[in-house]
Write a protein that binds this DNA or RNA. Structure first.
Lengths: 294, 294
DNA sequence: CGCGAGATTGACTCGGGTCAATAGTAGTGG
DNA sequence: CCACTACTATTGACCCGAGTCAATCTCGCG
């Protein structure tokens, strides 16, 4: 249970075991303990007209180790979480025990929102690395929102942003080819790393091929194969979890081969080949001079 | 522009033409004109501890005709919409003009939420039938939320619900086969019609095969074929836009043939066949004694 | 009555899922 | 320290579900 890699034996949604686990964590108080409103809003990338930095309103941090569950499906909801550092995944578990990865929250991301409506979390959140999370008791937060108008708006804003993200996800799953999905996934990861201050060109994946596949609606084999293909074409460099981005533009513009409901009949295959050629022509111009993330 | 079927010629995101159109509508004032808070919450299926029915806070209705656009992508956001009656679709338009249907709002649904974050609508909403919508000016609404706590919570709740819905969508697109998607689509439609007071057994689709396909991440041919297959198996009755549900349980439990990241290796094909058999055995027990919707 | 949009069907193709074998990696324990 | 074990990743062979292309049919409307 305390090993650093994910070996926890899927506890069958056992709530008591979860709580035991949380208790086990013991609200350790190393590292940063509290955050104020401003820090919180900065993290959420929400522009707040710097309200008086109320020192009275502080939010506690909690640490989770790799593999630990932050919350499970069905567990009573009462707090939202903001990632201060670390990487997680949120998953849905369908009626037959199959996991479906919904998101990979990282620094600045909010999660737990799906619990508001039914007052129970609709998904499960698991730490993919050691994490430092900010607790955001929902009651306390809404109460605050009433006195700090801009905070309330921030909340709406973040939820709206999350909704737009999901829409983009739906759109991607509905319309893009496997290659395009993987390409975009890499691009978005790269961008996230960039604005977290890490290298956007060389980084380590925090999740398995299986998790990536689940997130993208593909099998792990397809993910692996696609990464290998990108590698051969020269778009990226792959070695296990380590990814080097060699041609982000090619990845970004890599469109769907004639996928789903396409009406504008532009031979998609040609686009792919074009992208490949385009990539090959740039192959030698990028270099790897940046620091590896983490 | 005022014809009752959808012939509007994709106006290339021309905002001025949109506004002209809205002006054209002329905020017609037939039918119900205003709704109070309680009515609004009832519609949203949010339990509100019946706040004093403030007659001062009323929300205006607007009518749209089939094919009219309620808002377009990029248009400045300032109001949310609640469907009082009628059917719509919301679509995303990707970088090459392809539509992707995101939802089919109907009675009691809220839309426009995706505009909160960037202050511009991220999607486009189009009426699939004549519609009666309730306008919900966002500013006014949040202001109200500050004095009526339960209203604020209702807003969070509805947004959270919407998020969960999107998650379910992602999950479906990522994990289910074409047949399962169509089956679930029919089930959810049936349920929606049921709690709108229409028949859950016999109803008319308000959207084309193409739109259904776009929504489900399939081609219109696959949708058509799948409906035909369900028809032959005896799960449903199809005639153009008219759908008769004959075995909702079979549709509900129709699982994915071995789709994506399946680890529990249960021969999916057998499940399908089982469902078919199951369906056949029930074939004669359902009857069509209910009133057709609309 | 003819036109155009939508729906249905068939034939063909191929992207990506399935199954399976192999290899690289890391944590565990003797 | 090294073998043992459990994941994780990579690759290949095979095949089927669903996309593509295209012909035909229906229906509502001008």
């Amino acid at each position: 249970m305390t090993s650093t890699h994910m070996t926890e034996t899927k506890p069958e949604l056992n709530h008591s075991s979860l709580h035991a686990l949380a208790a086990d964590t013991g609200w350790q108080r190393q590292g940063k303990l509290w955050s104020d409103l401003k820090e919180l809003c900065d993290l959420l990338r929400v522009q707040v007209v710097t309200s008086v930095s109320d020192e009275e309103f502080l939010f506690q941090h909690v640490q989770f180790k790799t593999g630990q569950r932050i919350h499970t499906i069905g567990q009573a909801f009462d707090t939202l979480y903001i990632v201060h550092s670390g990487f997680l995944k949120t998953v849905l578990i369908d009626e037959f025990g199959n996991e479906q990865v919904l998101s990979f929250p990282m620094k600045g991301d909010l999660f737990g929102v799906d619990g508001i409506h039914t007052r129970r979390y609709a998904s499960e959140a698991v730490a993919l690395s050691n994490c430092d999370l900010i607790l955001l008791p929902f009651k306390k937060f809404t109460a605050l929102g009433r006195t700090h108008v801009e905070l309330e708006h921030a909340m709406y804003s973040v939820m709206s942003r999350e909704l737009v993200r999901e829409q983009a996800m739906v759109s991607m799953l509905g319309a893009l080819s496997a290659e395009a999905r993987v390409a975009r996934f890499l691009v978005s990861l790269s961008e996230r790393f960039a604005d977290m201050g890490y290298s956007s060109k060389l980084f380590n994946l925090r999740m398995t091929r299986h998790e990536i596949g689940s997130y993208l609606g593909l099998t792990l084999e397809t993910v692996s194969r696609t990464l290998s293909a990108f590698n051969e074409i020269g778009l990226i460099t792959v070695d296990q979890r380590s990814i080097g981005i060699r041609d982000i533009e090619a990845l970004r513009t890599l469109r769907r081969l004639p996928p789903s409901s396409s009406r504008s009949k532009q031979a998609g295959k040609k686009l792919r080949e074009a992208a490949a050629v385009q990539a090959a022509s740039r192959e030698s111009k990028t270099e790897f001079d940046q620091v590896v993330a983490i």
